[in-house]
């Protein structure tokens, strides 16, 4: 399997997921649901690496993607004055995608997985509120929260289907991608999800950048030396992990 085939597989999944949740009013006002292809790639790591993959795994990936779409829709609701029709429907879009994830797994009779994933969602909301309450969290705790927010349901999915060995690569890569996006937005003076909300992160941007660099270097090393991952998957991971760094370097000349 080469890079083009991997990209094609991820895109096919994305379009299959979108087919599950077409709702004309939501499409008109809130647009296509957010499905992050990079996150989808890391969710599909076991499949791309040739692990046995059945219809249940496929449906569960759809469900996990819908959980992230739901949470992403709600992250787009403004803190104040969400009175436009688009904003009102953004609220409902998130609820609608949540209902769809539950329905998909209910029809597949995966009650135990429903339970585990709903526990993930409660944990994610708890960690999201860390950026809104007045408690004192450390730098490490906040970075840990970001990692959990961006990866917990996928970790649960991988544990459920016994793809334990992939969890580490997925979690580190998604944390890295998230931090890169945050810092890039922060440097462009655009709104961020976490940095804007935390004086600890804001006053430690250099530390955040150093942390990012460390995760990237360690991850590339771990991927290259992995006995689990096949060469085409190693190549695809490294390419994704380093892509944004190259883009940043080029932009900065």
């Amino acid at each position: 399997m080469n890079e083009a085939m991997i990209t094609q597989q991820v895109k096919q999944y994305k379009s299959d997921i979108l087919l599950q949740i077409g709702q004309s009013t939501l499409l008109n006002y809130t647009g296509v649901p957010i499905i992050d292809e990079e996150r989808l790639f890391f969710t599909l790591l076991p499949l791309l690496n040739g692990e046995e993959w059945n219809e249940s795994e496929r449906i569960s990936v759809f469900a996990i993607s819908l959980i992230f779409s739901a949470l992403a829709a709600h992250d787009l609701v403004k803190e104040q004055n969400a009175t436009s029709r688009e904003q009102q429907l953004q609220v409902l879009a998130g609820d609608y995608y949540s209902g769809k994830y539950y329905q998909l797994l209910a029809k597949d009779k995966k009650i135990d997985l429903i339970r585990q994933l709903s526990e993930c969602v409660t944990t994610i909301t708890e960690h999201k509120t860390r950026f809104y309450d007045q408690q004192n969290y450390t730098f490490e705790q906040l970075v840990g929260s970001i990692q959990l927010i961006v990866s917990k349901p996928i970790e649960q999915f991988m544990e459920y289907y016994s793809f334990h060995e992939y969890v580490f690569f997925m979690k580190e890569a998604l944390l890295l991608a998230s931090l890169k996006k945050e810092i890039a937005a922060y440097e462009r003076l655009e709104a961020t999800l976490y940095i804007d909300k935390s004086s600890v992160l804001k006053s430690n941007i250099n530390l955040l950048q150093a942390e990012m660099k460390k995760i990237e270097n360690d991850l590339i090393q771990d991927v290259r030396s992995s006995e689990l991952l096949k060469d085409h998957v190693k190549h695809a991971i490294v390419e994704r992990v380093t892509k944004r760094s190259l883009e940043t370097q080029l932009r900065e000349g």
Binding site: Y102, R115, V121, T122, T125
Partner: peptide
């Protein structure tokens, strides 16, 4: 609004967790 969104999401998720 954002805290209200998270509170609602938390309650929906708890509901699903509970009914399992």
């Amino acid at each position: 609004n954002r805290v209200a969104m998270y509170t609602g999401d938390f309650l929906f998720a708890k509901a699903i967790e509970y009914i399992t």
